[in-house]
Design a protein around this nucleic acid. Structure first.
Lengths: 361, 361
DNA sequence: GGCCAGCGTCGAAGCGCTTCGACGATCCCC
DNA sequence: GGGGATCGTCGAAGCGCTTCGACGCTGGCC
């Protein structure tokens, strides 16, 4: 038991038996009494909002430790009008983008804790009403919204909500909002530039499943736009197709694609759930990777490393986005002004799945 | 004027149209005044803890709607000693089991909302101290703990914590605790029984990555025990190996396995992240699935359906576990007694990856 | 030596809600 | 027709904390 995990200083006192069963029953009043100071003094020790002499502070801190005091969150929220909790709104549908989502969520929780905040998990299926409830009940101080669509119903609500929020992803109109994301337009361009630099002249983008485009999800559209723009600029031809998930569906999609573009030599894949199957299927269609077809993926590094061959990729920096999103939100909570738009630069890592274009037949 | 962002103007009574934007400023007192009843009456309308005449109730409800009233969560928690929030403790490490985790988390949130509770997301990296903090601060009414290890430090803490909890997974000693999980021992047995029934005499289990066994994670050990026990009972030989993730690592593992067991015809795979690669690699090692080797997976249905060939599998019923875990916790919150152990029955779905054993050479 | 500044501490007033006991009105039954 | 049982409503007392104004001290300065 003395293996206390992050207890600043465990029971300093030989005999003390503060472990007592009594759970949340120790209040600030108990601490004050035990330390022989006023209740408000304990509060000021905890918040640091007024100067307290070192002597008093130590006495209070000792009592706190001895009694195992933890401030009651509800009372604190009520009195201070700060819950020290932020909401993280995730899309309900599981399946798509899951590992990235998870990485992101974990980064959010970890970072929030560093700011002494907790995270309330909210699913998108409650829609705008859910946001309103969470905000109006003063349950959270701020809101982090993921998987924002271009024409998201929740966006106008957020604007009027009078609670700070940060969006992951960009809606069509982001004025007055704080948004952050990877710069997917540039990510698309970077992939194409890499392929073009290797001499590829006919390429394709295999993107998210069709449903994601239909839902008007920003990142998918932006990547496609980036790919097509860069292709035009480099004077190479590119087609962009959605890409389903599941080995069989991927095969069908590839067969289709190769029928349309038999002399295709470069592929950009933005679908982490499908990229493994793409790699496994291409050889069975007579296309070795990278000798016949070079593949660039937009996916988490972890996937790219584990694939075979290891994938040249532009990683989605989920952790970085999570961290920065929380930081932005925290700055807004203490009402610093923050930039409206933060676009993270894409970085392409060259691995084994791309090489110089084969000589023209 | 009603556009005032956080104008403390209370409904001036009479003619005032308090619909205003003012966010969390409408309190139960405003509602009471607007409806012309006592504050406590509004509270009783909301909680239903005392009879209220239909007339009064409707008047109050109308006022609530008109004013856009939402109870302040902090005040409610303070007064009622119930936060209406449960904690969901997830393992920090992303990567492993991610889609199952996500499915599970979503089911938890959705179910909790049906019970009018919200979910606080906690990562395991704060360890026991984090649990203690969450519980002692009365921030949550109950705790859901995932990814329990056999000898989990948090388990003894939970026992003494005086806050209801439900564990997903079984620690070595689960007395006094409420636990729920798929019955992995039987899941292992069911897989073996299926293969044995098809005439397979030499099989193997490819399990979780070695780290998971080293961490003493219950489900991995239990499945292995179930597989080995059933194999013995059926008089067939079985070996159990951990299975790494990533296409290249999977290939190595398979090559090893086939070197050790060249006449192997049945495979149980309990590693959703690797099963795709297993299927893709076996043919390249001269083993067609299912003609030469039958494969049964323990993985989410979604994976099994999308694989090629479609996998005979025992699904991990993540949603069901999530739902039931929340239900158990809710029952404990109103202090009903609940069963200590809930083991969900495994169900094997036959698809295209298993078939009768090839004739002996 | 007396005065004015902090400094450190205290007491009390809420924050918005739940809940308990009280108290008129009804209603029913004998 | 009167007495006791509801029924519906109200007022007030907290829940545990933050924060504001007040106040006694100490110390530097003229």
């Amino acid at each position: 038991m003395p293996a206390g995990p992050d207890d600043p200083t465990p029971p300093a006192d030989g005999t003390a038996e503060p472990t007592a069963k009594s759970p949340d029953l120790v209040t600030i009043a108990d601490v004050a009494r035990h330390a022989g100071v006023a209740l408000s003094t304990v509060s000021y020790v905890l918040s640091g909002k007024r100067a307290i002499s070192a002597t008093t502070r130590n006495r209070v801190l000792t009592s706190i430790r001895l009694l195992g005091y933890h401030p009651n969150a509800g009372a604190r929220a009520l009195a201070s009008r700060r819950a020290n909790v932020i909401a993280l709104v995730l899309p309900l549908r599981s399946g798509m983008q899951v590992p990235v989502l998870m990485q992101f969520a974990m980064a959010v929780v970890t970072t929030a804790r560093q700011f002494d905040h907790d995270v309330l998990l909210v699913t998108a299926d409650e829609g705008p009403a859910g946001l309103r409830r969470i905000a109006a009940s003063a349950m959270v101080d701020g809101i982090l919204l993921m998987d924002v669509e271009m024409h998201d119903l929740r966006v106008p609500l957020l604007r009027e909500l009078a609670r700070p929020s940060v969006l992951i992803g960009f809606p069509a109109d982001s004025t007055g909002l704080t948004c952050i994301d990877l710069d997917f337009h540039r990510a698309g361009e970077v992939c194409v530039a890499h392929l073009a630099g290797l001499g590829h002249r006919r390429i394709a983008l295999l993107g998210a499943p069709a449903a994601v485009y239909d839902r008007d999800t920003g990142f998918a559209h932006r990547t496609r736009a980036g790919v097509l723009a860069a292709a035009e600029r480099h004077g190479i031809t590119a087609v962009a197709l959605p890409c389903p998930e599941g080995a069989a569906a991927v095969r069908t999609a590839l067969v289709d694609l190769l029928a349309r573009q038999p002399d295709l030599t470069g592929l950009v894949v933005q679908n982490e759930a499908a990229v493994g199957d793409v790699l496994a299927t291409l050889p069975t269609l007579g296309r070795r990777v990278p000798q016949d077809v070079s593949v660039v993926a937009i996916c988490p590094d972890q996937f790219a490393e584990q694939a075979s061959p290891r994938l040249t990729s532009v990683p989605v920096p989920a952790e970085e986005v999570g961290r920065q999103a929380v930081s932005l939100l925290m700055r807004k909570l203490v009402d610093a002004t923050v930039p409206e738009a933060t676009m993270l630069d894409p970085h392409l890592t060259v691995r084994d799945s791309t090489t110089a274009a084969p000589p023209l037949p």
